[in-house]
Amino acid sequence: MGVVTSPNVKRKYGAPSFERYSWFFMRISGLIMFLAVTFHLLYMHMVVKVENITFENIVERWNGPYGLLWKAFDLSLLLLGMLHGYNGVRWSINDYIHHKGWNLALRILLYILAGILITAGLAVLINGPGDLR
């Protein structure tokens, strides 16, 4: 008795796909962000207080004794938030936009936008706020 596969059924499903990793990333990043963002909100609102959230204070924190740790934390918020959010928008585009051209165009637009925002965030993290101050 061999493996019975109906010969007249064309294999429509089963192309190896990147979506497996994209799904896993969403679960893990969501879990980490749930903790990290909760901490971020509580810390900024209850400890730092809203009126003290200024570039000066952030730069001071980055240059302080735990500066590297704070930078790493802010970097993880930036990357996880951006990639998680943009991957969600990519999922929505793939769910609802079936026209191949429009689908591709919207995703390219999305990648450009994500690239610009992540680059801007990284620039601030590496160089400090600079002229934005």
Partner: peptide, 20 residues
């Protein structure tokens, strides 16, 4: 004994990963 084959079929962008 066909679990792997079925998992491969469902590991598709239109397989289980469309589930939200």
């Amino acid at each position: 004994q066909g679990a792997l084959e079925r998992l491969q079929i469902l590991d598709d962008r239109d397989g289980v990963w469309r589930c939200r």
